[in-house]
Design a protein around this nucleic acid. Sequence first.
DNA 1: ATCCCCATGTAATTTGTTACATGATTGA
DNA 2: TCAATCATGTAACAAATTACATGGGGAT
Lengths: 180, 180
Amino acid sequence: MDVKTVCLGMLTDGPASGYDLKKEFESSFAHFFAAGYGSIYPALSWLSEHDLVTCEEIPQDGKPDRKVYCITEAGRQFLLKALKNTQPCHKVRSEFLATMCFSHLMDAEDVQAVLDHRLADIHRYQELFRNIEQDYMSEWPEGARFVLGFGKAVAAAMETYINENRHTLAADPAARIAAG
Amino acid sequence: MDVKTVCLGMLTDGPASGYDLKKEFESSFAHFFAAGYGSIYPALSWLSEHDLVTCEEIPQDGKPDRKVYCITEAGRQFLLKALKNTQPCHKVRSEFLATMCFSHLMDAEDVQAVLDHRLADIHRYQELFRNIEQDYMSEWPEGARFVLGFGKAVAAAMETYINENRHTLAADPAARIAAG
DNA sequence: ATCCCCATGTAATTTGTTACATGATTGA
DNA sequence: TCAATCATGTAACAAATTACATGGGGAT
């Protein structure tokens, strides 16, 4: 499932512009699916070319025309077919963990700074989760609630793990000198 | 931190071939950093061109020459500089969670199949973790042990969450018909 | 016989990121 | 006056995936 398909899925919730979808990528999808304008706008163009969405241009003064996309029946069928894949992947690419693998080559302060930065990042997600819960969640289907809960559970597990294990990483100076 | 840098880091542990590094990507790095031959071999060529590693070709009969790479002092400095970045990212791209967001459009059986597949995947990682712990872990530096523990903690949290919440996704047939 | 392990690499393709380009309105 | 929000898009670039290409040795 690529950006195109996710955009299509978001449009099942009602018509929206590329700008609107970006906001959704930044809120409820932020913890598991990133996409910038450079992916979203081309995705919407592609969907429109293939008649999976229709596009209504709404003139605005001062701003570019607002283009509101709406899923078509063909788009809905396309999405349903994509959702038939019962082996969707879940990929992690962590420069954080890669860095930690080599923490014995680093200064102890830098290692702790990396951990602090990661915790700050986790806290940002947790705040995002709280905001989402307040604002929208009551109207959501179960699936979306499941996904939010998943994010919260994983974030909590990471936070706990880092707090309980960071003390093991008080780097041994001898090892650093030998490595350097 | 890209594949190049991770390969360089792996070589701090001792000389190795591209084939050897691939095995490491498939075992201890599998849960957070994927890389195939199509990334590893070009990475090693690049590192060699830039004198960050040396390459010793060991002739073998029947097989292609085994190329054993060894990190240089310049390579070590390059790595140390890369590790100075105290804001390494941790990215998730989950087609699984994207699919679950739209579970209300899916057949209930398919939703459960998706969850079963994800659990099976998690169990594969957990088995991998057990094998790694048996075979190598005692000799590892703290950082590598921290990373393995992190993977275990996250996998356990995901497993628990899925098991405890999958019952909420007994799709409502009325919603599916309305959507279709 | 057949499959897996060893062992290397290239080329085409796909995919996404980043930087660039524009510019009015609204609220502090 | 300054920053943020609204609103679109392209082009260059970076990076990784996938398919292709080769082939002997050892275990079952």
